[in-house]
Design a protein around this nucleic acid. Structure first.
Length: 273
DNA sequence: GGTGGACCTGTGCA
DNA sequence: GTGCACAGGTCCA
């Protein structure tokens, strides 16, 4: 059990905001897989109860050591951002495993969240090691790289099958890829990620934010584009991706990626102009 | 460097 | 039942 130090933290907001796709909730308990271990976790006020892993692992995965209040306090005073923070307070950006994050967002493009969850579940069931009865680890790059495209396509990933397979092959051939990304500043790391098939600007920013904790990375999806244009920029002219991301960094500061997550989490309650 | 069309699949809605 | 729009975009010409 973890107590006190974990706050401010909201487990439900963190797991429901769309940054991860594999956690399932039954009753009060969330179930997921960390480092090939089946983990159950629930929050009871200031306490986090869990089985299957250590407090250190939970703290690391949910990034509980980070001063979230300081991050939220660094945001500018803006009614829409304030609304988002009030709505999703306690949401933390998880430390996702780099490969799982990369593969997940490659198959997540141009789709909706329930469909993404289905695809990832099918990929895990088909290509991931069974770590407990009915529970599968995320497939390794090697297992996907060795799979015929048609097998991957059976997991309803559509045309993304070749992106996933080819990226898995590139990563299998370069096991140091993750260390190389860690060692680079944001823009250079992004450039490196863009070389992988199926990784465009948005997916690269998701990977840099969710797996590498580059908090200046601002994934601009259709929702964020809409919110930014309607409430922070101009509605008259549709701006390209990098212009919106740059503007978000200017407006929100060094934790712009965090601000993006709060806006995304609150997308349903942010008024449409 | 910017633009427009094609693209798997699932869901919600008229 | 059917058609259409849309969804955490990327790639290519």
């Amino acid at each position: 059990m973890l107590e006190g130090d974990a706050l401010p933290f909201n487990l439900d907001r963190t797991l429901l905001c769309g940054q991860v796709f594999r956690w399932e909730k039954t009753g009060q308990w969330w179930t997921g897989i960390l480092a090939d271990n089946v983990v159950h976790i629930r929050q009871d006020g200031r306490e986090l109860h869990f089985t299957g892993t250590t407090g250190e692992e939970i703290t690391r995965y949910f990034d509980l050591d980070r001063d979230l209040e300081a991050i939220l306090a660094s945001f500018p005073d803006h009614p829409i951002l304030n609304l988002a923070v009030d709505h999703a307070r306690g949401l933390r950006v998880i430390r996702q495993p780099a490969w799982e994050c990369t593969a997940s967002y490659i198959v997540a493009t141009f789709a909706n969240i329930p469909g993404i969850q289905t695809r990832i579940r099918l990929l895990c069931e088909r290509f991931g090691d069974e770590v407990a009865p009915g529970r599968h680890a995320f497939p390794s790059p090697r297992s996907l790289a060795a799979s015929p495209l048609c097998d991957i396509r059976d997991c309803r990933v559509g045309y993304r099958d070749r992106y996933l397979c080819n990226t898995a092959m590139m990563i299998t051939e370069n096991p140091a890829w993750e260390r190389e990304i860690w060692d680079l500043p944001y823009q250079e790391a992004r450039k490196k990620l863009l070389a992988y098939p199926g990784v465009g600007k948005k997916v690269a920013d998701c990977i840099l934010l969710f797996a590498f904790h580059h908090f200046e990375a601002v994934p601009v999806d259709v929702w964020i584009e809409r919110i930014m244009q309607q409430h922070f920029l101009t509605r008259d002219l549709r701006l390209p991706y990098d212009r919106i991301a740059d503007a978000a960094r200017d407006i929100f500061g060094p934790y712009a990626g965090y601000a993006q997550e709060y806006l995304f989490a609150a997308r349903d309650i942010i008024p449409k102009k």
